[in-house]
Design a protein around this nucleic acid. Sequence first.
DNA 1: ATGTCATTGCATCAATGA
Length: 260
Amino acid sequence: MNIATWNVNSLKIRFNQVLDFLVKNNIDILCLQETKLIDDNFPHEEFNRLGYQSYCYGQKTYNGVAIISKYKAIEVSYGIKNYIDEQKRVISITVNVNNFDLRIICIYCPNGQSLESDKFRYKMEWFYHLNTFIYNELENHKNLILLGDYNIAPSDDDVYDTNIWQNTILVSKDERTAFTNLINLGLNDLFNKFDQPKKSFTWWDYRNYSFLKNNGLRIDHILASNSVQSVCESFNIDIEMRKKERPSDHAPVSIRIKTI
DNA sequence: ATGTCATTGCATCAATGA
């Protein structure tokens, strides 16, 4: 079973690339971020035609998340439970595959802009509520995967230049603590389960030929509970999609898990 | 490297967010 996450930076613009990615990689479940589509405009029929169900939680202009799945969801939930947030950043589904209940949570974490900004305070508040939410989700779902754009590079290995990326947004101590706090709930960063090339990144700024120079950050992550980690067979960052014409600034990240 | 890209509103570009 192949499960992926991708910040597409507008599903409208990236639609054909998404279809291509799904088919070429035989993706079973894809989590999307920054769809930038209201739910009325979501292309459910087109995904249907390829054999996928789709679940969306979007808004105009900004944010927006969705899950595309070959398996029909037995449960769908929107947002972070008990946290009122106008920004559409979280959607979760449960699927049942061969009597294996799998909880998939797709997240688009706030960027935070700069450490002094109101947006940073919102980011920290948001992660606090996400943590409580995931704690509760883990109580109810043993097999859980949390995928998406975290807007946090967890360690200095996850940035191309530690001189530039030091005590700034995406790498600050507080943000890294928020990431560690999620791990401490009983999750594993599946990137670390396998040997990875040095300088593996998932996002490159559109500016300054960043991708050409591999000036990137690893901010898109797949975290999984122990039971899911134990059946995970591979982890891949698909940088080919970042090489396409008119690409997203993020590359898709995917895993393969043994279906029980 | 604040030298790109996507969206919106009312415009044939500026403002905003990432």
